[in-house]
Computed example of a mutant assay.
Amino acid sequence: MHSKAVLTQTEVTLLLAAARAQAQANQWAVSIAIVDDGGHPLALERLDGCAPISAYIATEKARTAALGRRESKAYEDMINGGRTAFLSVPVLSGTLEGGVPVIVDGQVVGAVGVSGVKAEQDALVAKAAVAAL
């Protein structure tokens, strides 16, 4: 039997705070979602001025990164590269840049998803969160 780390509220709070700090430092109104390794929501924060749809998109980006065990951008790149059949994959609906897995000791324990600004800026905020852990 294998053992692996799990995200607790301590880590979730740290991830959320780091993402918020990065977004606010750039004056970006974003939504930040944190999920566990099964893509289940642990936290969601929509910063002032961010469009309501971004909360849903951020959650789906995080879910995609957690379940796929890779950045959501990988799926966007596949689709943009011509593999459009990938759009029909069940469950993964956040196939846009901005979802980043949280990896501890080589295992995905969750993910951070961000939405609200340009895709590469969303990813920058998510990566800042993961780097803080």
Rank of each mutant, 00 (worst) to 15 (best):
A23H: 04
A5T: 09
G81V: 15
V104M: 08
W28N: 04
A17N: 07
A25H: 07
A65F: 03
P90N: 04
G49C: 02
V100M: 14
V125F: 02
I32G: 15
A131S: 09
E120F: 07
E60Y: 08
A17V: 03
I34A: 09
G81S: 12
L96W: 11
A51E: 14
A66W: 03
A66F: 01
L16W: 01
A132V: 05
D36V: 12
A128L: 00
D77P: 08
P101Q: 01
S72Q: 01
G106C: 09
G98M: 10
L7S: 11
V89P: 02
H2W: 14
A25G: 14
I34Y: 10
A129Q: 06
K61H: 07
G38I: 06
T59L: 12
A17C: 00
S54N: 14
I79T: 06
F86I: 15
S72W: 03
D37E: 13
G39S: 06
L87I: 11
I103R: 12
I79E: 05
L133P: 13
Q27M: 06
Q22R: 15
Q121K: 13
S115N: 06
K4I: 09
V100C: 13
I53H: 10
L47F: 00
V100N: 11
G49L: 01
V102F: 11
S3G: 15
I53V: 10
G98W: 09
Q107P: 03
G49F: 01
G110E: 04
K127Q: 12
V30D: 04
T59H: 10
T13P: 01
A66C: 03
L15W: 03
A55Q: 14
Q121V: 06
E97C: 14
